[in-house]
């Protein structure tokens, strides 16, 4: 649309991880936690963790997949699904078009089949930059199809979550995606299949309150914001400052809602171990 030609991308601060590699950019990146100035090429080696304090920068979906699966093993599913506009909401189509242009993704989740150290899995990875990883019809549908594919092919399912919550522009339809994905997960669990989620920064709202939290094993990246309500909403509701470290991965570990906090560089190895434990040596007649 003509309007798009005049609309500047809404960058306030340009984080290196919001920009694709093929776009020329600076060589340096400042850590928002310890303020260390980091070389982008060093960050690539640590999977975007600060070399000084360990802060995990947010990571796009494509890059995430590459960091986890066996090289060349990923086969994307339902890549063509794009959002409709169920409420006929104002500038939603333009908003989607803009997000697609910036991210080179069709939607906020990529799903597919891949191998992890030879273990065949169904995998879904959310992208925190695509309209904040919000869940609308397409995210709900792709996740549900991934669950159904895992059931059909009797494969483990792994989902990396990153979401600001519901896709507001899809209103009640986005809310219903919670029931839709959970319904499918009930069937997956009944089928006795392994489901692992990896919660990354941020995982909030409708995604936390649906498929993110319904896994057999829940991993979380260090320092990620994880919760139902956003911190600002809670502060407003309670009219008080939130305690230090509230709603972080470590907080959730302490309160019994995640199994392990795993640094990004160890996530692939952790998944391999877990997959191995579930594919060899089990007894069928328990």
């Amino acid at each position: 649309m003509l309007k798009d030609l005049f609309r500047k991308p809404k960058y306030v601060t340009v984080h290196a991880d919001t920009v694709k590699k093929d776009i020329p950019e600076g060589l340096l990146q400042k850590c928002p936690v310890c303020s260390e100035i980091l070389f982008i090429k060093d960050l690539d080696k640590t999977l975007k963790a600060c070399t000084k304090c360990g802060y995990h920068f947010r990571m796009g979906a494509r890059e995430r997949i590459n960091s986890v699966v066996d090289e060349g093993s990923f086969v994307e599913l339902d890549a063509v699904l794009e959002s409709g506009n169920p409420l006929g909401f104002g500038d939603y189509p333009e908003k989607i078009a803009e997000a697609q242009k910036i991210s080179k993704l069709k939607e906020a989740v990529i799903t597919g089949e891949a191998a992890i150290n030879g273990n065949q899995v169904v995998i879904g990875v959310m992208d925190p930059f695509f309209i904040m990883g919000s869940m609308g019809s397409v995210v709900g549908e792709k996740v549900t199809r991934a669950i159904e594919r895992a059931i059909e092919k009797r494969l483990p399912l792994i989902i990396f979550t990153a979401s600001g919550g519901a896709r507001m522009q899809e209103g009640i339809i986005s809310l219903m995606q919670m029931a839709k994905t959970c319904g499918a997960l009930a069937r997956l669990h009944k089928a006795g299949l392994l489901y692992i989620t990896v919660l990354t920064d941020p995982t909030t709202g409708g995604v936390t309150a649906s498929f993110a939290s319904m896994a057999d094993i829940i991993l979380a990246e260090p320092g990620a914001l994880i919760g139902f309500a956003g911190p600002r909403v809670i502060e407003q509701a309670m009219k008080q400052k939130l305690p230090e470290g509230f709603q972080t991965s470590e907080f959730l570990l302490e309160h019994g809602f995640v199994d392990m906090v795993v640094p990004r560089t160890q996530i692939r190895d952790t998944l391999v171990k877990l997959l191995d434990l579930h594919t060899t040596g089990g007894t069928d007649n328990v």
């Binding site: 029931a179 959970c182 009930a186 669990h189 009944k190 498929f211 919760g227 139902f228 509230f246 309160h255």
Partner: peptide
């Protein structure tokens, strides 16, 4: 809506909701 507060987060509001959605479906 479900309550948004410190205690609600400490006791797993999101976990409680997803459990209901999943269990109710069957």
């Amino acid at each position: 809506g479900a309550y948004c507060g410190i205690g609600a987060e400490e006791r797993g509001q999101a976990w409680a909701i997803s459990a209901n959605l999943t269990r109710m479906s069957t």
